[in-house]
Write a protein that binds this DNA or RNA. Structure first.
Lengths: 339, 339
DNA sequence: AATTCTTGCTTCATCGATTGAGCAAGCATG
DNA sequence: CATGCTTGCTCAATCGATGAAGCAAGAATT
């Protein structure tokens, strides 16, 4: 019974023949509803044993084709280059598996075209549900899925065509800005407007964070300098560029900065070290997102950590409940203690 | 022709009916081999247009079931909490897509049981090929796949049942250790044995890195202190624990350390800052793996960056060539310049 | 003894796409 | 005019799993 090189995989028909029974019985036994189908315990055991011996593996493509629900759940995610998205994906996989769902994830490199292409591919694989994380154009993805009758949920960035789970960006930004302003005052004895750098001016999160940034300034009686609101994109190079251009225009650089992601912070820090502009006195920084090594960079950096476990609990709460009403759940982020 | 809520998805049969032709013709047109099947350009165009209008999406389950190759490629990966695995996954997806393959990735949390479960799931989804990245027990995964006639490739950690692509761990560790020893001498004027911390004593990479570590000591005429070889696991807590216990045993802590991954470095750095043991003079560090913020932590840290693009080129080179001979390709890592 | 019920299966259509085989019409060739 | 070739399609089997419907044998009921 040992095939050295198994050209064809074992199917339920092979097992049926070996057990002297029908494929239907084998199927019923192996997918667990043999009691419902009145298969004897004796036959069930025999089939189970045979399946084990033969190293039988269900052909999911065939199974899914026949069933109404695929139990496949998709996620699109922009990048894997930071702890935030990394932990989102880890949590997503764990929670999906815990529910007997098979997660498939595609990284779209923040490219709207790839987002759509990936969503289309997932629809072809018959996903039951698609979570769009940080999608540049979530509503187009949603429409595509809606046309195929597939549920969707927005994560990180909200959309208007499906339920969304996001951080409380305004609240987080408000508190983060407060702290940076306070640090500036403590350190330099003066309240001056901060720089806002990174993110896309058109995305909801960035807009909300800018709003929190403005309100914290207002609270502190500081006027925001509009030339210092630099929503230049997330990539390190873009943040670096923005800094360089700013330095070319002004000699009086801001004492503190609100940096809109760890990945933008990478560019900002690089510029700070290379340009030497802040050689005499370090700028007070705030970063919207957490990274363990950033935390070690010094006590001039404050961070806001988005609450990934709570966010994913909310996502699966929506999935489990079957809710489809277009709500936006806001999860408060955690403002990290320094050190 | 507008269904508000599309209960059933559009199939080739629907399109055939709309076009007044056969499902066979529709299939041929949509999967691109209509020339081979002598379908007229006129009909092809008509079908293509209809498919677009109807928002037709191929049912991959049905397609894969019928075809001999699924064009699905699987990868298992330990964690998403560091730049190394993050960039591996990003590259893997990009290269797979460029070849018309659909990548599915599962994160196994460094759990051997999950590795096997994930591999089994991928086999059920009919992957054509499976890349096992940093697998704890690669050979069991390979055997499972071999029984199903699925090709496999080891990445990051080698196995003995399939081709492997790994870093030149020995060479990287040798050079890294040299540099840390040199930095120690420059800084403290003395050559003392370094600490090796992190990784699993049983995994190939860690053993090779320890070997490089030893040889660099020998070269420099320094005797390795066996009590300072702490292959305690990768997790930050484990590294932190190892440091604490070491400090309890000795008052004379090592001047320099070889840290076996960024994730272990996280624990080491945490301990250094919290314990205050190195308050007077920072230890010279070397980290096997790269992280942008670690690079900014100061010039007392050297890093080795594994060459992910080259590694993945090698992986897909093997896949494209169809080679199955059990070789180990070693890719030299890049030793980063400080700053 | 005749009827109904239960148990333990088997048969067969089905999911949607693919593809070898075949067929009819048109054209060219001898 | 008969034959063969080309063009442009259609037919039907198939991939593997699923589950409604059905059937035969035995047990229980009247």
């Amino acid at each position: 019974m040992n095939r050295t090189t198994q050209t064809k995989r074992t199917t339920i028909y092979d097992l049926a023949e070996l057990a002297g029974t029908s494929a239907s019985a084998v199927s019923a036994v192996l997918n667990g509803n043999w009691k419902k189908r009145r298969i004897s315990a004796k036959l069930a055991e025999k089939i189970t044993k045979l399946a084990e011996e033969q190293g039988y593996a269900l052909n999911m493509q065939a199974s899914v084709l026949r069933r109404d629900r695929s139990k496949i759940i998709g996620m699109i995610v922009p990048k894997y280059d930071n702890r935030y998205f990394g932990s989102i994906v880890e949590q997503f996989e764990a929670l999906a598996r815990a529910r007997g769902l098979f997660p498939i994830i595609t990284c779209t490199m923040r490219d709207p075209a790839l987002e759509l292409e990936a969503a289309r591919a997932m629809l072809s694989y018959q996903v039951d549900c698609l979570v769009a994380t940080g999608a540049t154009d979530p509503d187009r993805v949603m429409d595509l899925c809606a046309a195929a009758g597939v549920r969707t949920i927005n994560l990180d960035l909200p959309g208007s065509h499906a339920p969304s789970v996001i951080s409380d960006n305004y609240g987080g930004a408000l508190e983060l800005t407060r702290r940076v302003l306070a640090n500036c005052e403590k350190e330099y004895g003066e309240k001056t407007p901060l720089l806002f750098v990174g993110g896309r001016g058109t995305d909801h999160n960035t807009m909300e964070r800018v709003r929190g940034f403005r309100d914290a300034h207002a609270e502190a009686g500081v006027t925001v300098d509009e030339a210092l609101v630099q929503t230049c994109g997330y990539a390190p190079e873009k943040a670096e560029n923005a800094m360089r251009q700013l330095a070319e225009r002004t000699s009086d650089l801001p004492r503190g900065m609100f940096v809109n992601s760890t990945i933008s912070l990478e560019g900002v820090m690089r510029w700070i070290r290379r340009s030497g502009h802040y050689a005499d006195r370090v700028p007070q920084l705030g970063c919207f997102d957490w990274d363990p090594f950033v935390a070690m960079l010094g006590d001039h950096i404050e961070m806001v950590r988005q609450d990934v476990p709570k966010m994913l609990d909310a996502v699966f709460g929506i999935i489990d409940s079957g809710a489809t009403d277009i709500t936006v759940v806001q999860i408060p982020p955690i403002v990290e203690k320094i050190g």
